[in-house]
Design a protein around this nucleic acid. Sequence first.
DNA 1: AGCACGCCGACT
DNA 2: GTCGGCGTGCTC
Length: 790
Amino acid sequence: MIAEVIVDVAAHPIDRPFDYAVPEELQVLVEPGMRVKVPFGPRKVLGFITALKDTSDFDVSRLKPIHELMDVVPVLNEELLAMAKWMKKQTVCFEIDALQVMIPSALRAKYEKRFVLNAPLEELPEPLQPYFDKRPSVRSQDAVEVYGLLKKELERGTVVADTDISQQTAVKKARMIHITDSLEKLESIEIRSNAKQQVKLMAFFKNHLGKAIESSVLQKEAGTTLPTIYSLAEKGAAEIHNEELYRDPKLLSDIEKKPNLQLTEAQQAAYDAIDAALNTPKTFLLHGITGSGKTEIYLQTIEETLKAGKEAIMLVPEISLTPQMTLRFKERFGDLVAVLHSGLSAGEKYDEWRKIQRAEVKVVVGARSAIFAPFRNLGLIILDEEHESSYKQDDSPRYHARDMAIWRSEYHNCPVILGSATPSLESYARAQKGVYELLVLEKRAKNQPLPTVHIVDMREELRNGNRSMFSVPLAEAIRERLDRKEQTVLFLNKRGYSSFVLCRDCGTVMQCPNCDISLTYHRSSELMKCHYCGYDEPVPHTCPECESEHIRFFGTGTQKVEEELAKLVPEARVLRMDVDTTRNKGAHEKILAAFGEGKADILLGTQMIAKGLDFPNITLVGVLSADTTLHLPDFRAAEKTYQLLTQVSGRAGRDKLPGTVFVQSYTPDHYAITLAKDQLYEPFFEQEMAMRRASGYPPYYYVVNVQFTHEDLMTVAGYADQSVRFLQSQLSQSTLIIGPSASLIARVNNRYRYQCLIKYKKRTEARRRYAAADQNLSLGMDKKRRNIVD
DNA sequence: AGCACGCCGACT
DNA sequence: GTCGGCGTGCTC
């Protein structure tokens, strides 16, 4: 028996199956999808069995045997193995990367070099002996001081090198206290009245008859200690066992089940359409304005799916995977829900994953990678906020969860729901073409009015002598809320890595004449540069449109805003939320909770607070500068601005009090801003589509971003140039190649980065040619890394 | 990617 | 004479 193995080495010549002999004793056990340790050249590596067969194109007598089988049950099923092969083609990644991303990180191998003693200890030189005293091997990192000596011993053969392949200790064991379920039994136990601790614990036991509680949890909940527990256990009040356990933070909190909400007419119509398609590989685009009740539709369609004996995956953007959100699912589906998000430890994620694999849960709520949940009988996939860019992984494998969802839906014959208040242009265009079925919710479920949105012209403010970042109307509105004891949320869209030059008189921002994106200001060279094509021109001293001298570099940090805010309303209590204040685990939730409890008047933050903010007392939202997003060097800048403004406005007036929104901008007439004011999605879509068509961007063209990196600037520039010429000769004339030019972040980890854009219309043809070129280029390239981004 | 093999310069 | 630099080639 022969196994095809995809080996854990991410490199071009290795990216294909290698054949291994299956040892006699393993033949009854092996299955595709299991992990194996195999010899590979002079070392051992981990790999995945992707197939079993009886013949090989390779010389069978030279096949090496599998060294060790790592699993008893496959970690990947046939579907996921097939999906990895497809991902490799689809995203131009190594198959091993596709396989690795499908399993929890706790199962991924850790490699550790070791020195193994291969002779009696006495034969080693004196200084080495302590290292091997009472242990057969030593971690290479623990023996750095004696590398010289070890090297000599390696040659003598008294010590050999080895690579230890391990995985995280995955299964958690814990001491469980099983409280007896008989009240009589408890009452028959006598406790001396001066044993106060025991009396206290006994009372707790009586309230939790028949329950099993982890000892550490019990100690915390009952305020007791281990000896006390043991004394009561000896008297028969409880039994103590060591058990395999899931890491679940909420052992005692019984979540109350909540019934379905009554659907509105529009919700019912959408629900019926999906319900009718529960056994078809159909993709729905559910377009519903903020507050229109999309979640209730998700919950009820999932319920139908479960009734049919099938499973469901619910994807949400990482940032909105808040406790309130997951609670809503647990209230409906109780223990049948697994939750996967970045806040969990590797072990916790592994536990959730095992629940899925063992079919103990039926619903998964999670971020991007939850799309690989190893369900076998999938009945429904939902992507909430489908336009979110976090659904695309930005390193290899650069997959988009939406594409993976649709692939799985075809495999399982089940529907996909893409939900959003502001669909991506790509999805909406597909819905218009009839590729997806469009479902629309035009009204808010509780019939609340949309908040009133005011657009503030900051050019006007400047003309009136206001040079601060708070316009007069916004400042007034903030003061009003303070008086009325209502809350305010202020958004500052950070400038990130790019900065632009803006005319404060007319709002002009310089654009690239070739690419229709904003030019980026480079301080070192004093140039305005285009990050798509490399075009540059000097920084202007006066505005090219209106000749004003008020043209300057733009961008502010939250800290500076905080200072100005303190001057504006010194009495206000302000909470700041940005990357600096949310670095620690759980800080995000803590700040939000504090704000929700009314411990502050104003919440100041970046995009990260645009989601999951649902507090009744927020009546004012201020967007300090809509321009920052609008002038990102990105062809999706307008789309992102529209989405952000819509999202942000939805934070105000979610309960009884009406909401007001102020959007400050130097380009208040831009369609992304004016149309977001009243959530006019269709007109925005039409206008933005026209722009995309005119400048050759998605959805009209496919765009691929190829990156080149190298530690030497000249080398990478030269290779990028050479590669682009090669690609040009390979691809058809309708394919445009833009660049190469230095990347937005010109250097990362001491490697210089270049990129080029490839634009094409026919997907399959260009993809195939590109993949071929990818092979050729890599062969000719030295110490270079290449990446496809889009 | 990682590791071994192998072929030339500067040290004991 | 030997240590060690990194070019080349292979991995079932």
